[in-house]
Amino acid sequence: MTRRIVVADDHPMFRDAMRSAIVGAVPDAEILEAGTLSTTAEVLENAPDPDLVLLDLNMPGMHGFAGLVYLCAQFPSVPIAVISANEEPRVIRRAIDAGASGYIPKSASSEDMRAALDALLEGEVWVPAGADTGNAADDGDAEVTARIASLTPQQVRVLMMLSDGLINKQIAYELGVSEGTVKAHVSAILQKLGVISRTQAVILARQLAEEADAPQEMVRRAANER
């Protein structure tokens, strides 16, 4: 049975490395690629029944966990596993709490990559062996993640646009809706996030994006090691 796997990462060299790793583990896989959040969404819209998405949290447009929440909400039947150079336990836990089906370090060995793909394609959750994620996210982390995950896909998009500095009129144009609809989304976002202003919502969203960041040296090293 052919497996359709989407590799979503903005580093072409790492996508090539992932393609080789996938072919070694799943020889009959059909591999699709994307380099931004928007192109990932387009691929998922157009590709019939993807079996798995391997997602970089730091691609253009992602805003870290916000992009993950958006994709999980927009495509709830598609397993999405984060693949990242950031191996901090609290980040792994946040990704799982935000809806990810697994978390694969970019430094993973070929054996671990094969094990991860096998588990994820069988519908299991996979995290690195020995990753102590049980208490990695404190109660505050879990609460914030739950609030973000409670947003609808459209509300997540609005939040990301607010983080980019867009005003209501610009957001309405980008989404093809009225300004009144945008205002309603913003109100719902503030209520769900437990904040009282757009500024506080943006600060929270940017904090989530920063927590998902991996130092660029780690990214380069992981790509070279593949």
Rank of each mutant, 00 (worst) to 15 (best):
H185M: 08
Q191A: 11
A188W: 02
Q207D: 15
L208W: 05
I203V: 14
K192D: 09
Q200P: 09
V177W: 03
L193Y: 04
G180M: 03
G176D: 02
K192H: 06
I203L: 15
G176S: 05
L204T: 12
R206G: 06
I203F: 12
S187A: 13
Q200A: 15
S187D: 08
I189F: 00
Q200R: 15
V177R: 10
V195W: 00
R198F: 07
V182R: 02
G194Y: 04
I189P: 00
V186A: 05
V202G: 05
T199Y: 13
A184E: 13
E179S: 12
S197N: 08
A205T: 08
T181V: 11
Q200Y: 12
T181F: 13
L175R: 04
K192L: 09
A209D: 12
A209Y: 01
K192V: 01
E179Q: 13
L193D: 02
L193M: 10
V186D: 03
T181S: 14
V182A: 06
L190M: 07
K192G: 01
I189H: 00
T199E: 15
R198D: 09
A201N: 08
T199H: 15
G176A: 06
I203M: 14
A201D: 01
L175Q: 04
L190P: 00
G180K: 00
G176F: 05
R206Q: 15
V182P: 05
L208A: 11
V186H: 04
V177T: 11
I189A: 00
A209K: 08
I196M: 10
E179D: 15
K192Q: 10
S178Q: 09
